[in-house]
């Protein structure tokens, strides 16, 4: 005897009613519209308010220019090629730093999370480093590495390292010891336990770290480009402000927000691919 009739799987698609096809399409369309509005309505409202405030003169349009002026500035900057160099160098700086952080933090975090003595010995210093603002350390990095690329990349690297490292350590430590014991019962070696249980178990937490680090990388990018740079999206924000090209300044800010959204989206997609089992959320 078995229980198949009683035990049902908890998730399975619900049946769709027997409406006519056209009716169903309309219904689906309006449902989609409602979903879209409930999600993006506030954002659209904000943009509309901005546009109206600026064109009606409720705010000073010289400081808060209308959206169309910003779009034009963005368009001429990107399509005209004036901002392309800046985007390229910014991506290079933050990309190099981010990649270096990934290469250092993930293996180090996996190791530290596994070996309790190491983790215990290094946790206090990690906490101190993490709480020390990377921006406050930037002058020191400049003194050590000069005002060129090295100090810029390093300050971004420094700031992105810790969220990733700490999340990787946390992910490894939070792997259920009962699962590890289960694997041991089947005769798994330490390496097999690591490869088949610890690593996959830590992946969701590593992704939290990756997304935090990607955001931090862009944040620090701007700050570092505001000091001693003559190229880069962050530089353009400062430069446009000095020259009072306010639409261009906003165009650069929009560009940065776009880069942030894009990198986050890319990581979410990757996470969904790797962690289909945990139904990753954006």
């Amino acid at each position: 005897m078995s229980l198949q009739h009683i035990e049902q799987p908890s998730v399975l698609g619900a049946g769709i009613g027997d409406n006519s096809y056209g009716h169903e399409l309309v219904q689906r369309g309006s449902q989609a519209a409602a979903r879209f509005l409930s999600r993006y309505g506030a954002l659209l409202g904000f943009l509309a308010l901005w546009q109206v405030s600026s064109t009606r003169g409720w705010v000073n349009p010289a400081v808060i220019p209308p959206l169309d002026a910003i779009v034009v500035a963005l368009w001429t900057g990107v399509v005209g090629g004036a901002l392309l160099d800046d985007i390229a160098i910014s991506l290079q700086r933050s990309g190099t730093a981010f990649a270096a952080a990934v290469v250092v933090a993930i293996p180090l975090g996996l190791f530290m999370g596994q070996v309790r003595a190491v983790e215990r010995a290094f946790d206090p210093i990690l906490q101190v480093f993490r709480q020390t603002s990377a921006l406050a350390l930037y002058p020191i990095f400049i003194l050590l590495l000069g005002l060129g690329e090295a100090s810029k990349v390093f300050v971004i690297f420094w700031a992105t390292l810790f969220p990733l490292l700490l999340n990787t350590i946390g992910g490894v430590k939070e792997v259920d010891p009962k699962l590890i014991e289960m694997a041991r019962v089947y005769g798994a070696t330490r390496l097999t336990v690591f490869r088949r249980v610890v690593l996959p178990g830590a992946v969701p937490s590593i992704f939290v770290g990756l997304r935090l680090s990607a955001t931090t990388a862009l944040l620090l990018l701007i700050a570092s480009e505001m000091i001693g740079a003559n190229k880069g999206v962050g530089f353009q924000v400062m430069n446009a402000q000095y020259n009072f090209q306010i639409p261009l300044m906003f165009a650069a800010i929009v560009l940065l927000a776009g880069l942030g959204l894009l990198s986050n989206y890319a990581l979410v997609l990757l996470q969904r691919r790797l962690c289909r089992w945990s139904s990753a959320t954006a």
């Binding site: 259920d176 699962l179 019962v185 992946v203």
Partner: peptide, 19 residues
């Protein structure tokens, strides 16, 4: 220690959620 002649069933299923 553990051996291939034995298998254990625990109170919790202890399944790997990603498999």
């Amino acid at each position: 220690g553990v051996g291939t002649d034995r298998a254990v069933i625990f109170q919790e299923p202890r399944l790997l959620p990603w498999l």
